[in-house]
Amino acid sequence: MTYTLHVLSIISISAGLLFFLAGTVGLLRLPDTLSRLHALTKADNLGLGLIVLGLLFQAPGLLGGIKLILVWLLVLFGSAATSQLIARLARERRSSR
């Protein structure tokens, strides 16, 4: 049972890290602010989701698991809102040019 859980954790966290890698490559390679944001938030949110899923298999109890999910939801919410704010600023700068 613990063996299966470990394997599930490793698969899930590795997949999450792959998304982080893809997001970082996007941040470095994509040409403008909006597409960089798009790559970063999409990849990071899904990547963090997969890492949290992987950690859930190792969670000490129900409360610990709920806290992990709460962390993911808060980051999801925060990064979605901040990326909107950054995108708005980028659009204003472009139109004022």
């Binding site: 808060l74 919410f77 925060g78 979605a80 809102a81 901040t82 909107q84 704010l85 708005r88």
Partner: peptide, 14 residues
């Protein structure tokens, strides 16, 4: 209505 409006409606209680 914007993202800040959403943040300030949801985040402070949490």
């Amino acid at each position: 209505n914007g993202p800040l409006g959403l943040l300030v409606s949801v985040l402070p209680p949490v």
